[in-house]
Deep mutational scan, measured.
Amino acid sequence: VKVFRALYTFEPRTPDELYFEEGDIIYITDMSDTNWWKGTSKGRTGLIPSNYVAEQ
């Protein structure tokens, strides 16, 4: 598990995607895809765009 911080707010387009706000901490559990990672924030899990976060 790696810890990342959201650089921007992300509004999901599908139920599989995770909503998060700029500054949120996201725990990444799967980075197997280059563009979409699986992450958890505020008790919810979903896909996030990798270019919206920076490693802490």
Score class of each variant (00 low, 15 high):
29 T>K: 06
54 A>E: 14
28 I>M: 07
5 R>P: 02
55 E>P: 14
45 T>Q: 10
31 M>L: 06
35 N>M: 14
48 I>H: 00
27 Y>R: 06
42 K>S: 11
18 L>G: 00
28 I>Q: 00
46 G>W: 02
31 M>E: 04
33 D>P: 04
42 K>Y: 08
38 K>S: 10
29 T>V: 11
21 E>D: 07
46 G>Q: 00
38 K>Y: 15
1 V>D: 11
44 R>S: 07
12 P>H: 03
20 F>S: 00
8 Y>H: 11
51 N>M: 11
1 V>M: 13
14 T>P: 01
11 E>A: 11
10 F>A: 11
30 D>Q: 06
49 P>N: 07
39 G>M: 01
18 L>N: 00
22 E>M: 13
14 T>E: 09
1 V>C: 15
48 I>W: 02
31 M>P: 04
55 E>D: 09
4 F>A: 07
52 Y>K: 05
10 F>R: 11
51 N>T: 12
50 S>Q: 06
14 T>Y: 12
40 T>V: 12
14 T>Q: 10
43 G>I: 01
25 I>Y: 09
23 G>E: 03
13 R>H: 10
7 L>H: 03
1 V>S: 13
38 K>C: 15
56 Q>R: 09
28 I>L: 04
9 T>V: 04
24 D>N: 03
51 N>K: 11
30 D>V: 05
37 W>V: 02
15 P>H: 09
42 K>C: 10
38 K>I: 15
51 N>E: 11
54 A>M: 13
49 P>Q: 05
26 I>K: 00
32 S>Q: 10
3 V>E: 10
17 E>G: 10
37 W>S: 00
19 Y>M: 08
27 Y>T: 09
35 N>E: 13
25 I>F: 09
32 S>M: 08
43 G>H: 05
41 S>T: 14
21 E>C: 08
23 G>T: 02
12 P>W: 06
18 L>Q: 00
55 E>V: 12
12 P>M: 07
24 D>C: 07
34 T>K: 15
42 K>V: 03
36 W>R: 05
39 G>I: 02
18 L>D: 01
49 P>A: 05
33 D>S: 08
18 L>V: 05
8 Y>W: 11
27 Y>A: 06
21 E>N: 08
48 I>D: 01
6 A>Y: 03
29 T>S: 11
45 T>I: 10
56 Q>N: 12
42 K>G: 14
19 Y>F: 13
55 E>G: 06
52 Y>Q: 06
43 G>W: 03
11 E>T: 14
46 G>D: 00
42 K>D: 09
14 T>A: 11
31 M>W: 11
52 Y>I: 08
44 R>H: 09
32 S>T: 14
9 T>L: 07
